[in-house]
Structures are given as C-alpha cells and as structure tokens.
Design a protein around this nucleic acid. Structure first.
Lengths: 239, 239
DNA sequence: CGGCAAATTGAACAGAGTCAAAACCAGTGG
DNA sequence: CCACTGGTTTTGACTCTGTTCAATTTGCCG
C-alpha cells in the first residue's frame, strides 16, 4: 500500500524495519476521492496529513479575480501535506486532479514519531525540504524560462519523479490533466499551453493526448528545458 | 546576538529556557561577509547552517544563459540554509546582498538537538516549512501577478517580515538592493522594474531610493498587491 | 444522436523585453 | 576642490512573447 512511499524514502536514506513499521502504523484510514475535489481547504485546522497512494493531487492558491496558481503536483508515494503537521493549517488548498486513493496519517501519530524516532523525523523533515526544492525550481521556471522551456521542464520533472515510483518508463507516463490545469501550473493561459504543446509535438519531443504524456525524444526535451535533475536529490545515498 | 531569531521563533511557539540554551550553544562562530558574495555554492557539501544576524542574504539559481532567479530573501533572524541540514548539499546557491554578519551552526550540533529535543526539532522543521510557504507565495506572484502587483507584494512581505524583527516601522525599512537584484527576485528585467518603481512612486505608495523603502501609503500598497499576510503565519500561538 | 467540456485556431492587443543612449551618483585620486 | 571612473538609474523607441476574445472543431459519454 505505502510501498511507493517507502521506496522513495529509501532512495535517499535507510529506513530500518522498526521505522518502516512506525510509518505503517501512522496510517489510520484509506479514502477514495473523485477528480477535481478540494480535500484540504486553505486555513482549515488540520488533524492529519495525507499520503497519496494513487492519482495526482495538487497544491494551489486562488486569487481574487478567479485566477489560480498550482504550486506543486503530487504523485503517488508523496505526502501531500506533511508540512501541515508543523503548520497546523495551510496557506493553500489541496485538490485531486484525478480520482485518488489517499491514506490519512493523524498528526498525533506523527507527533509520536517525532518524540520517539529522531532519524525518521529527519527523514520526514527531508521530505518536506525536497518539496521546497521543487518549489524553487518552479520559481525559476515561472520567473525566467519562456513558455516552451517551462513546459518541457515540467514534463521532464514528472518523468523523473514518476520513474522513481515505477509509474513512468522511457515511453512516457499517464498524466490525465486538462490543458487548463497544465496552464495553472505553468503560469500561462490554456490557449498558449495549447500552442506550446503543438510546438513540442511538431518538434517530435512529446505528445500530450488522451491523458498521457508520450515522450518521443527525451534527450531533446531535456535539452530545450535545460533540465538538470539535481534538485530532485536522487543520489543522496551514494554521496 | 540571536535575539531576532528567538523572538521570531517565539512568535509562533514557546521556547523554554533549556531550548533557548540549546539554540545558543548551536552556534560555533560569527563571521562577517561583504556584499555580493556567494557564501554557499550550489552542490557543495555542507557542514553547518547559517543564521543571519545582520544584513540581507538571498538564495538564487543561475541559468546557463547568465540569467538568475532569486528564490528567497533572508532577513536578520532567519536561518538561510537550515534545510541544508537534511539536504546535505543545496540545489541552489546563497549570497549576501549587503554586508552581513552571520552565525554558523555546525550540523553535528543540530543533529544533537534532533536527538535530544523533539519539540525544538519541530520548531526548526516548522521554520523550514515557513520558508516553503514564502516560496509558494512567490510562485503565485511569478505565475499570476503582473509586474506592478508583484513588486508591491514583495515590498509588503518584507515590511511584515522586517517588522517582526524590529527592522521596519510604519515609514518603511532599509533595503539596499539594486534594481537589477530586485528584478532577479521578481522575474522581470531591471528596465521594467525601474518603470514599475516609478509608477508606485507616482501613485504615492512607496519610494525605493537610497537603499531604503519608504512606505507612503501601506494601505494602498496592500490593496494593489492584494496582500494577505496569512502565509507568514504570524498568529500561530493565538490559535 | 445530442450535449458539453476540452481542444484548437485566428486576429488583434498588451505587457514586458530588448537595445541603446543619457543622466546620475558615490568613491577615488590628483 | 574638481575631474574621472564605473556602476546604477532613467528614458525612449521598437520588438516580441504571451494574452484576450471569439469562433470552430473534437471527442467523450449517456
């Protein structure tokens, strides 16, 4: 059930049997959600964190004029709001992008982990810090990359992150978002995203169609994006 | 020396005498740096984290074409790279924007804190999560706000964050950056920042001049920025 | 087959970038 | 005290990337 989460943690650090058991027993409940449902509302008091088991989830902020910025996409194996454990309530909302299965980890159980397992606490802390790394890379994309590179960069990021949890291979991955949702990640309009996708397709790099990203030339995609996966910290145990 | 840091922590949680002493004894060394000096290089192995005592520091990422995106500004009292404790090396660099005095906190001492003081560990964890909140708000700015609102928003954020550590009053604050550096925060060119600053000045909201932000109409500034300080979590203890 | 959301396309427009020149300003040295 | 220097700020003219608005097409699903 939480295998994806564990393998992601173990990519970066050792998790012994006792710690694994501690993580497992953190989970109180498994819940299914339909697509496009806000599961955590900005500002509401939190009593548990949500671990994504299946589906895609995002963090987003709304603006008063109806615009929305998605600030992070979560893939299976991610804690979507582990940071909520220390923050107590969130500055943003969390919604499902696709139908999802999620596990709930009550904060009192996470609290016990922080009291009893310092190493595991650091692992959890690391995991929220890794989210921040991704936030920073998105800031770079939003601030400095133009639409084509920015879009290519996002597809590269997801390719790598999904591969870690066995949900992508060399040909691509399932990613059933609308172009409007993609635009909300990229700080663009859906019209422009559509044009960028056509360009990427015409250049033979990717196809975004039928809820799937088909990567036809990853090397070229990485090249236009100037994608450097260092910010995803995939090699931490080797160092 | 670390009074600003402590008062910032205490705004959000209780820190008892023993914990305060633990924080104090974390610091091994105090160092001065000139302006515009990179003090942590992307990728290098880290052995300590840096607490800002005086001056402004930023996190930034360079792109291959020479562009730069500043992803965060640190003010006195901030740990600039506490996240480096769990990450071991950073995905970005850290540089001084002004002459700075910083305190070094060796990672082995922070490690001891995580072994012995679970509550203080959560406080530190919170503090890196708060940085992530600011990253998210910057994502919203970069992705969805236009230049004028985005710039106004940054000045609002700094007004609030500096007020916490007693470095801003109703009239404004010292903020000796160049317009180019401001542009690197805002995802704009320095030419356009110059025009935006003129507009903000002409509208009677702020003056950015002589290394100082003089706020002439904070209410109006907040209004154009649609600034909501909730993401800075200033009221956590009251809840 | 019909209905509806999503994708696609075109044309006009605007916000921000680019390029280049001029003005300003603080520090330095004669 | 003043001229020189180099970085920063300011301004103008022009360009371009991405937006806006509106219409059309596509594709899915009951």
């Amino acid at each position: 059930m939480i295998g994806k989460h564990l393998s992601k943690l173990r990519l970066r650090d050792e998790i012994n049997a006792e710690e694994e058991e501690a993580i497992r027993s953190c989970i109180s409940e498994i819940v299914d959600y339909p697509a496009d449902q806000t599961i955590v509302h900005r500002g509401e008091e939190l009593h548990y964190s949500t671990l994504v088991l299946e589906g895609f989830i995002c963090r987003y902020k709304d603006l008063s004029d109806g615009q929305r910025q998605i600030t992070h996409i979560h893939v299976p194996g991610d804690f979507a709001d582990l940071h909520g454990f220390t923050l107590k309530h969130l500055d943003h909302s969390i919604m499902t992008l696709t139908p999802c299965k999620i596990a709930k980890a009550p904060h009192e159980r996470i609290l016990k982990i922080t009291e009893k397992y310092p190493h595991l606490t650091r692992v959890f802390w690391f995991s929220t810090n890794l989210d921040a790394c991704i936030h920073r890379e998105w800031e770079v994309s939003l601030g400095r990359r133009r639409a084509l590179e920015r879009t290519a960069h996002l597809f590269c990021e997801l390719q790598v992150r999904l591969q870690i949890v066995g949900m992508a291979d060399e040909t691509g991955y399932a990613f059933p978002l609308t172009q409007t949702e993609l635009a909300e990640c990229l700080g663009l309009t859906s019209v422009h995203v559509n044009r960028v996708l056509r360009e990427l397709r015409e250049r033979g790099m990717i196809e975004f169609r039928g809820g799937r990203v088909s990567i036809t030339d990853f090397k070229a995609l990485k090249a236009v994006a100037e994608f450097d996966p260092a910010y995803l910290y995939m090699e931490l145990r080797d160092r």
